[in-house]
Write a protein that binds this DNA or RNA. Structure first.
Length: 457
DNA sequence: AGCACA
């Protein structure tokens, strides 16, 4: 039944070509790890600075006997294995290979993602950050933002070597106390690499700087310490309108792909770009239209609606602060329909061209203002999902899943269904929409779709 | 000083 009767740590371990090293100094670099181990054989993979204290590592030898020779050597040696004067304890790992050694944040680049732990955004000024990181080379640009992980900054150096030296020196360290307000306690820096290569700083402000362009305009709304939301006539917070919508997908029981988003949002006009990403444990998507008007219509029409009947994949929309997304043209999480004829895409996929790796690992990859999206409204229209449960509306639209009592897990019916006889594709609703008192169909006020649904191309 | 979650 269970293997939990096995002791967590065994004193006699099965040899493995993967060794587990502990009590390493947290500064230990991969190079030092390799220096320690390579006398015993060929190292094919490493994983350095793991564990909560970043003081453990894994080393994988090409051959089991090489790992055995290292363990045997230090088992009988009077000189313990050491790194930077610290004794390193070596055991066989309980795994037999190192998998996926490089996480995205470990792939070196010229832009660092810095998380400043235990501080509020106002505690550490951008000038302090600039000062600290300038010790390692010219800092081109800085963008700061707040998100769930805390106060973060993207810091752009000239090259990966400079960025790497800053990371190696500062990761796990603290900003000097004299640079911080009195009330700030510890202030540890966690540093990884961003996928960015060039930050797009729009304004000099309290949260972003471009040191390569002193003539960049100062954002008048960002001079003060806190961005003031504009207040609408009803006294509620009002987001500035934008041609880019931020969609938060609630109750995402079923896969929401780029194609699904594209189909849904294309009902209101040309969708230029899409990016899907995870944030705060939920799924969000940025959808770019050519103009604000189209976005406004889509926002009004789709807010609170569900992609699937039964309360699944409910959409909440707000305006993004983006005006032009910078996305990979084709990935499983993003699409840029402006760079190439979208009709070529399926052909390319069939031909088996490798999909580019997803870069949208997090919101940083999505935007220069990663923390600046307005949070989706917490309150949602009250609605009883059970009201229409068991009668998925998509069946009445497509009729291709007779007897199926649950939505498809990947491809929505409307994406693959043939157009029902006797009806124009343009008159069909783009998707299943359920909301009290609202019939599925083209939302009131929406312009006729600018182009046919993509399944009829 | 005791096993990685990207």
């Amino acid at each position: 039944m269970s293997t939990s009767s096995q002791p967590q740590f065994r004193y006699t371990q099965t040899p493995s070509k993967v060794l587990h090293l502990r009590n390493l100094p947290w500064e230990c670099t991969e190079e030092e790890l390799i220096e320690l181990c390579k006398p015993f054989g060929k190292i094919v993979n490493t994983k350095c600075n793991v564990g909560a204290n970043r003081n453990q590592a894994f080393v994988e030898f090409a051959d089991l006997n090489q790992a055995i020779s290292m363990v045997s050597y230090y088992a009988s040696s009077s000189e313990p294995a050491q790194v930077r004067g610290k004794t390193v304890y070596i055991q066989y790992s309980n795994r037999h290979e190192i998998v996926n050694n490089k996480s995205p944040g470990d792939v070196p680049g010229n832009v660092l993602l810095v998380t400043i732990e235990g501080v509020e955004a106002g505690d550490v000024s951008i000038d302090v950050i600039h000062l600290v990181f300038s010790a390692f080379g010219f800092v081109h640009k800085i963008a700061t933002f707040e998100k769930a992980a805390g106060f973060q900054a993207l810091i752009q150096f000239t090259d990966a070597e400079t960025a790497s030296s800053a990371r190696n020196a500062l990761d796990g360290r603290s900003i000097p106390r004299y640079l911080l307000p009195e009330h700030v306690g510890s202030c540890h820096l966690r540093i990884s690499y961003s996928a960015h290569t060039d930050l797009n700083i729009k304004f000099q402000s309290h949260r972003s700087r471009d040191y390569t362009n002193p003539y960049l305009p100062v954002n008048p709304t960002a001079i003060e310490g806190v961005m003031q939301p504009t207040i609408g006539p009803d006294g509620k917070k009002k987001e500035p309108e934008s041609n880019v919508l931020l969609a938060s997908i609630e109750n995402m029981q079923y896969a929401v792909t780029v194609d699904v988003i594209h189909t849904v949002f294309s009902a209101f006009g040309t969708v230029q770009k899409i990016a899907i990403f995870e944030k705060n444990g939920g799924t969000q998507a940025l959808v770019q239209y050519p103009d604000v008007t189209t976005a406004a219509v889509a926002k009004e029409a789709l807010e609170g609606h569900c992609i699937y009947d039964g309360g699944y994949c409910k959409l909440h929309l707000s305006y993004s602060r983006h005006t032009d997304l910078n996305v990979k043209a084709y990935s499983d999480k993003s699409r840029d329909y402006t760079v190439q004829d979208p009709s070529l895409l399926p052909a390319q996929q069939i031909l088996g061209l490798p999909a580019p790796p997803a870069v949208w690992q997090n919101h940083q990859a999505a935007t220069m203002y990663p923390g600046s999206e307005y949070a989706a409204p917490a309150q949602v229209p009250s609605w009883n999902p059970s009201a229409q449960a068991g009668t998925p509306t998509y069946m009445s639209v497509a009729g291709t899943f007779p007897g199926q009592s649950y939505p498809p897990s990947s491809i929505p019916a409307y994406a693959t269904a043939p157009t029902p006889a006797g009806s124009s594709p343009l008159s069909q609703p783009p998707m299943v929409m359920t909301q009290p008192g609202v019939q599925p169909g083209r939302p009131a006020g929406a312009s006729p779709p600018g182009h046919p649904p993509y399944y009829v191309r």
